[in-house]
Simulated assay, not measured.
Amino acid sequence: MQLESKRALITGAGSGIGRALAIAATKRGMHVAICGRRSEALERTAVQMDRTRDTLIVVADVTVPADRRRLFETIAREWGELDVLVNNAGVVTGGSFATIDDQIVEETLRVNIQAPIALARVFLPLLEAARPSRIVNVGSIFGDIAYPGFAAYSASKFALRGFSDALRRELAPHGVSVTYAAPRATATVAASAFYGVPGVSIERLDPPERVAETIWRAVARGKPSVYARGPESLFVLLQRIAPWLIDLSLTRRESTSLL
Rank of each mutant, 00 (worst) to 15 (best):
F194D: 04
G95S: 06
V47T: 01
P116L: 04
S154T: 07
G230K: 00
G80Y: 13
R169N: 13
S133T: 03
I135G: 08
A242C: 05
A172P: 14
S5V: 01
A129S: 15
S225Y: 13
L259C: 04
L124I: 10
A242R: 11
S96C: 10
L258K: 09
N87A: 10
R253K: 09
A20H: 04
S233W: 06
R44I: 09
L3F: 03
L250T: 11
D101L: 03
L171E: 05
G199H: 10
L109I: 11
L245E: 06
S133L: 06
A129W: 10
A22W: 03
A187R: 03
P198M: 14
L71C: 05
A152N: 12
T179R: 06
S225E: 04
I23K: 01
A120R: 08
T179M: 11
A22H: 01
K6D: 06
I23E: 05
T214M: 07
L248R: 15
M1L: 00
K157N: 06
P65S: 00
P183T: 11
S15E: 14
A25S: 15
R168P: 08
R37G: 04
L237I: 10
L56P: 01
G149E: 14
I135E: 01
A60D: 02
A181F: 04
A76S: 14
A151Q: 00
F123R: 00
L238K: 09
A60W: 07
M49A: 08
R210F: 00
K27T: 03
A151N: 11
S5N: 15
A130S: 15
V136N: 10
Q103D: 04
A172W: 12
R28P: 10
W216A: 02
G36E: 02
S15T: 03
R134D: 02
G199I: 01
G162D: 07
L9E: 13
T186H: 03
L42H: 00
A146V: 07
L71S: 00
G36I: 02
T99D: 14
S140T: 11
S96W: 08
S257T: 08
L82V: 14
G199F: 06
V211F: 01
M30S: 03
I135P: 11
I145T: 10
V189C: 07
P207K: 14
E254H: 15
L3Y: 03
L167W: 09
A22E: 05
G80E: 11
R134K: 12
S257A: 15
V58R: 06
R253A: 08
V189H: 13
N112A: 02
S225F: 14
S249D: 11
L237Y: 08
R38E: 04
A182G: 10
L126Q: 08
V122A: 05
N88I: 14
K223H: 05
L238V: 03
D67F: 01
R121P: 13
A212Y: 02
Y153M: 02
I75G: 03
G29R: 03
I241K: 07
L259P: 08
Y195C: 04
